[in-house]
Amino acid sequence: MWFFDALASGFQYPTDTGRLQWFRIIFGAVLTTRFVLAFGQGGWDRFVPGSMSVHLAKQRFGQARARALIILYRPGLLVRTAAALALALGFVPRIALLLVLAGIAMELLYLRSPNAVRYTLLTGACLLLAGNLGHGPHVDYGLSMENTWSQCLLVLVTTDIYWNSAWQKLRSSQFRSGLYLAQWIHTYTQVRDRLPHSQHAVPGLVRRHAGNLTSRDIRLWRLVAITVIVVEIVLPPPCSSRRRCLTRLSSAS
């Protein structure tokens, strides 16, 4: 397996540079989409005067820093979107990647549980360590050691997110019992008409037949919970690489 061979050789093991360049292109494309979508759903109007987000920012960072965040927020949204597009197209990819990472890191300042942000920052940092990110929208194929270390780090980070997530779920009785998923779907069913920007597309059939928080519903969601844990454990053996990272990136975003 290339991962263990690369590790054993101290990363002096040739891999196809094209693999990581494909990751760079798809990473850029996924983030371009994510950043464009972030303009909608109330994103552009976060930090409008008198809003809860302004109140929370002032509470958390104080007047001066909150003001700086509010001023930089909208230009930040624009710059990071342009940078993500440049990254996907291979235009000054390393500088574009740095701007993309700064743009995504901005979300740590106002999102409550930014798992997707942390995962993107970690995978982006791995990408930053690649020796050959490529230039332009084409991919350079060929064996070299330039991207081997970066590729190994991506596999490690992605394997960790699956296994650690499975571990955290195993330790949570709320998740294991099916209660978490049953409560999530029930709460969503109850409040969805009051949500200004719903980002969830839960089919009506699921809401009607599994969203009532009955003991049958909880038993059903327990099956789903156990399946999720098993899939998270089985899915990412370190022999996999790019494909798993990309799947996770799409789902986390």
């Binding site: 798992n115 960790d160 997530s165 955290q168 779920k169 949570s172 998740f175 029930h186 709460t187």
Partner: peptide
């Protein structure tokens, strides 16, 4: 590096 997605939460309706 602690990925607690969908693990614990308190919901209020």
């Amino acid at each position: 590096l602690r990925w607690r997605m969908f693990c614990r939460a308190t919901f209020t309706i």
